[in-house]
Design a protein around this nucleic acid. Structure first.
Lengths: 191, 191
DNA sequence: CCTACCGATCGGTAGG
DNA sequence: CCTACCGATCGGTAGG
């Protein structure tokens, strides 16, 4: 990927996150770059190509992170805290892409769609494995494991809806709060 | 609203939830009803009109539920459990509308957009109030209250992504699991 | 990266 | 609820 292509991709992502993939035209993207719509096609083969690159790029970032964590020795609680920290880190440091990745992947078609879903399921499995370990260790509640996994992921992914890079909470602080919430719940410890 | 209009609306919602508002054409909607695209306009003034009706209809359901709960005497834990139960009930019993409501509200324009955001914030405030009560009662952890509210809502809303009406979990069971998760967290009670 | 352009499809209207 | 139709915009190509 050339420097210019990366530059165009970034500008495109900034536009796409605002109105969503389906409601954004190739002309909208071109305008943000002050170029003609037709010129985009010397860098990308189609509008969907931009979506595809964005979604798969994010997916592989998450994939790399979970693979690494899953092979580390820490106990389940530490693993989960690390996974959440990494997840928040990826989301917040690529906020435009993250929003497209989370909202617009359904617009992928054909093989891209199914391949994406597969990658997403594989990541989900990585998280599930951590929670399963916690249950096996007797540290986590024996809850419906699929249910627990989805609930963890939903609360982590939701941060893109309100995260503000100039806000008072750093990604690390957000990750810690989120981990505490997920691990300990809302109710005060009855010691 | 005539019976026929409601019927058309329902069919439209079934189509909209599949591809999303922006990617669905008026022709797609008409086809699902075996009528001509132009005929839709004797029931609706525009494509956005359908989105507007769907979003605001859902919003008012949530609004009614939270208003009621907020005036009841139960303590914060009970209130939160009730709010979650009602929320899950509304989502699952209007699944098509719920998905459109959650995913496509950003496509509203002008006044509709701002009015919707306002309604959504007001519901959020209702949930926040319950959590605040819990903190005041000394029952809930003193966490960032806005943060806690958003995390609760995200995990509840996520159920539309995996809920299956024919699955083994009833809405009531889902609500209870979710409440337990949110209140007690993943970690086993160290008694 | 641009000019020039294409066929297809879009949301919507007029008139019955 | 339909026929007939509209101007605008869509994603994308040819050729330079």
């Amino acid at each position: 990927m050339t420097e210019r292509k990366r530059q165009i991709l970034q500008s495109a992502q900034a536009v796409l996150k605002k109105k969503g993939y389906a409601a954004t035209s190739v002309r909208d993207i071109a305008k943000s770059l002050e170029m003609e719509p037709a010129s985009l096609y010397s860098h990308f083969s189609s509008k969907e190509d931009i979506l595809k690159l964005t979604c798969f790029d994010m997916a592989s970032k998450f994939d790399r992170a979970i693979q690494e964590i899953n092979t580390l020795y820490f106990d389940a609680e530490q693993q989960l805290r690390m996974a959440i920290r990494e997840h928040v880190q990826i989301l917040t440091s690529h906020l435009d892409s993250a929003i497209i990745f989370l909202r617009d992947w359904r617009n992928l078609t054909g093989e891209s769609f199914s391949e994406f879903v597969e990658k997403r399921n594989s990541y989900e499995k990585g998280i599930r494995k951590i929670i399963q370990t916690g249950i096996d260790e007797g540290r986590f509640n024996e809850s419906d494991i699929k249910f627990a996994t989805l609930t963890v992921l939903s609360s982590v992914n939701w941060i893109v809806e309100w995260y503000n890079p100039e806000g008072k909470l750093s990604p690390t602080q957000i990750a810690e709060k989120l981990s505490n919430f997920i691990l300990n719940g809302l109710i005060k410890n009855k010691l």
